[in-house]
Write a protein that binds this DNA or RNA. Structure first.
Lengths: 170, 170
DNA sequence: TTGATGCTTGCATAATCATTCACTTACCCG
DNA sequence: CGGGTAAGTGAATGATTATGCAAGCATCAA
């Protein structure tokens, strides 16, 4: 059945481009592309694709694909994977680094960090969606933050206040 | 109705801590916390909180709070109310601010702080009756502490007993 | 007070989504 | 071949979530 692959690919594309609000809606869009399927099949496709419904402005909610590239998994580096998946923001102040995650996920990331033996990281404390990391004096908060950002793939963002990368004291 | 605020706080906490799989499930958890509501009300709460259902390993899907700052419901007014109600003491040291609350209330306040998008506040970690807040280098612990005191209504001289700024334990 | 207005909620129900069951097809192995 | 197995699908149905509506309650102005 190559049509399943094809259909799911089209589902992904439709979700990415349009604001798909429901499965019947998606069914319709698929039909316009010459692909017919029942709502049941679409439900299964969405599950396999890891699609979720997110809320957008105005109370509407549309579908979106959760993670985009399942391809670039560094094999031996579980930390990188965890970081990439769960870390939303990395900021630093003094010799502390604050890592933000989705609610309830902090301990997962903190655990991974603790076990990583990252140089420059003395220890972590995890709350609900926030991790405080204590950096060594040698590396400093800024240096550690850069390491963590690199691991997680997030860009520098300090609450709207511009901050030069790596410009601070070490 | 202050119970709505309270309920939504609890919803946020429950979602963050447990794997809430459905609205009836959440209804049950709320009841254990002494909060009763119907599925309809919970549905509305989840919409207002921006909660979404995400898929996790094993085909399960659970609720999670979606985004961060944008379009959040009750910004500073709600924060001020929560702070006024539960914050007992605010002290700072370096770029850290320690907020004391009645036992068991720290999470509620920290959650409100986290979602407030307060300038100068990088993140929080909540224990049982203590919250540690990390201030940006620009604002600093003293500045943030002043903001928090202003929000909560407590004075620098907590409980009538003068207390030097930055004298707190860390 | 009285009436208007707006917010919150529960009830009933509609809308949406997931799953069970039965069927078909393709493939592998004896 | 023929049987067995696994994947994929649709129809029907069960489970879950959203919503229209009306009631209850607070606020405000006259």
């Amino acid at each position: 059945m190559s049509s399943k692959q094809q259909r799911q690919q089209m589902v992904t594309r439709l979700i990415a481009h349009d604001n798909v609000s429901s499965q019947p809606h998606l069914q319709e869009l698929l039909k316009e592309q010459g692909i017919e399927a029942t709502q049941a099949t679409i439900s299964r496709d969405l599950e396999e694709l890891g699609a979720v419904k997110i809320r957008i402005a105005g109370g509407e909610s549309i579908y979106a694909i959760a993670e985009y590239a399942p391809a670039r998994v560094a094999p031996s580096d579980q930390l990188r994977r965890v970081m990439a998946e769960w870390v939303a923001e990395v900021t630093s102040s003094g010799n502390l680094v604050v890592v933000r995650t989705p609610p309830g996920c902090a301990h997962v990331v903190a655990s991974a960090l603790d076990r990583s033996g990252l140089v420059g990281l003395l220890g972590t404390v995890a709350g609900d969606d926030t991790i405080m990391c204590v950096a060594t004096e040698e590396v400093g908060g800024t240096g550690l933050a850069e390491q963590l950002r690199s691991l997680s793939g997030v860009t520098d963002a300090t609450g709207g206040i511009p901050r030069k990368k790596g410009a601070a004291h070490v």
